[in-house]
Write a protein that binds this DNA or RNA. Structure first.
Lengths: 222, 222
DNA sequence: TACTATACGGAACGATGGTTCCGTTTGTCA
DNA sequence: TGACAAACGGAACCATCGTTCCGTATAGTA
C-alpha cells in the first residue's frame, strides 16, 4: 500500500504479451528502459528513482510509465528476466554430477547472482513490502528446483537430513545482505563456505582468504 | 546526507548529560518519548515516522525535537540503551564457564535481541546509510567483547581457528533479517544452530523443531 | 495570585519520489 | 507529402517525512 499505485487500467497490457505492433521508436525505448533499469537496479536495488532510470535511458518518465504501469511492474519484469535462467540452471544441475557438489555449486551460484544484482537481494530481503515479488511464479519455481537439488543431495547422504528447504531459503536470504561493510564479495564467499559446511555431512572446507587475513589471531603456538 | 538535517545548534545538548533541571512535565514527556520510540522501533525499525512516535507519546513533534535534535539522535539513544547491557553480558560471559558454550550462548542471545528489537537489526544491516550508528562507540565495544569470547573459544579448541570476528559479524548481520516470511523466530533458531555448527569444531547439534516439521523428507530407510 | 522562563503543539516548510496529464513530436501509411 | 494515431517529454500533482517556527500554555517561584 505504501507506493500509492492506482488501479487504473492501461490501454495496453504493457508488461506481458510481446510487442503488439509497437512503433519502431517505442520498441527501441522499451529496450533502453530495461537496459537502464537493469544497470541501476543491479547496484542500487529497488531504491533508484524512476527519474534516474528515465534519464539514463534518455527518455521521459512518461515513457517509462507507458511501458510499465508501475515501478513495481518494472522491478518485477527485471526479476523475472534474472530468475528464469537460474531456474533452468538449477534444473539442469539436478540431473548431473555428484548430488552434494551440484547442490553446493548451485548455492554458490545463487548467492553470487544475488550479490551481482542487488534488486534480487532486495526482493528476497524485503518480502514484507507490498511489492510482494518474492513469493510468486518464477521464484516459486526456483524454490522448487533448489528443493529438488537439496533432496537429491540428502538422499545421497551428502546433506544432513534434518535440513529443510526453508532452512536453505532463510540462509540464502541472510547471505543476500549486500551492504559492503558487512558483506563484500570475499566475505560473502567465506560465509557461503561456512554455511555449506553446516549443511553438508562431515565437511570442513578451506575458507577462501580475505585480502590479507591469514594468521589466526594470536595463536598460543603450542 | 539524505535526511537533510541542518547543523544548527540546540540551546541545550539534549541527548546526553542528564536532566539539567528539566521542568517536571518536560521530564515526563522525555520518558514518554523514549518509551514510545522503543515500542515502535522494536517492531518497525528505524522506519517509523517521528509523527507516530509523537502521537503514541501523546506529545507534539516539536517536543520530540526539543529532546532529540534529530531522528538519528533518538535512534542512537535507543540503540545505546539496548547495546550497553549486551556489552556487559558479553564481558561477564567471557570470564565464566566453558569457552565454547559461552560463545554459542552469547551468539544466541544476541540474535534473539536483534529479533526482539528490529531497530538493532536495521542498524546492523543498513550500516551504509549516513546515520552511521553501526560502527561507533558502543557497537565497537560489543564487537570487541564478542571477539574476546571468540578467541577464547578458539584457544580452547572449540571454534575452528580459521574463523574470524568478521565472519561472525557478517553471519550475525545475515541472521538479523527480521522479515517473518523468511525468518520467524523458530526459523531463526534453526539457522543460528546451523551457523554455530559450522563454527564449532566437530559439532552437529539437534536442530530446534519448527511447528510440525518432523520427518525428514522421504528417507530411503536403509 | 501574578509573572516569566520553560516547554508545548502542530501548522508549515522543503525535499524526495511515484504517478498522471496534456500539449507537442514523430513514425507509419496512403 | 499530408494526415493521424501512436508515442513522447517533462511539468505538475500528490503523498510522505524530517525538521523548523512561532503563538500559546504552564510549572515554578515570589
Amino acid at each position: 500500500m505504501s507506493t500509492g499505485m492506482t488501479g487504473r487500467e492501461q490501454p495496453e497490457a504493457a508488461t506481458e504479451n510481446a510487442e503488439r505492433h509497437l512503433r519502431a521508436d517505442a520498441q527501441r525505448n522499451r529496450e533502453r528502459i530495461l537496459e537502464a533499469a537493469t544497470t541501476l537496479m543491479a547496484t542500487h536495488g529497488i531504491d533508484v528513482p524512476i527519474d534516474e532510470i528515465a534519464q539514463l535511458a534518455q527518455v521521459g518518465v512518461g515513457t517509462v510509465y507507458r511501458n510499465f504501469p508501475t515501478k513495481g511492474a518494472l522491478f518485477e519484469a527485471l526479476l523475472k528476466a534474472r530468475l528464469q535462467p537460474l531456474v533452468v540452471a538449477a534444473r539442469s544441475a539436478a540431473g548431473s554430477g555428484d548430488p552434494g557438489d551440484a547442490f553446493v555449486t548451485f548455492v554458490r551460484k545463487l548467492t553470487d547472482e544475488f550479490a551481482d544484482f542487488k534488486a534480487l537481494a532486495d526482493a528476497m530481503a524485503a518480502a514484507g513490502i507490498d511489492l510482494s515479488i518474492a513469493k510468486h511464479e518464477i521464484s516459486g519455481e526456483l524454490i522448487a528446483a533448489v528443493s529438488e537439488l537439496l533432496e537429491r543431495a540428502q538422499r545421497a547422504g551428502r546433506i544432513r537430513p534434518d535440513v529443510t528447504i526453508s532452512d536453505v531459503s532463510a540462509m540464502m536470504a541472510g547471505l543476500s545482505h549486500t551492504d559492503p561493510s558487512f558483506m563484500d564479495p570475499p566475505q560473502r564467499q567465506r560465509c557461503v563456505a561456512l554455511v555449506c559446511d553446516s549443511l553438508l555431512v562431515g565437511a570442513r572446507s578451506v575458507l577462501p582468504r580475505k585480502k590479507f587475513a591469514a594468521a589466526p589471531p594470536a595463536p598460543s603456538r603450542s
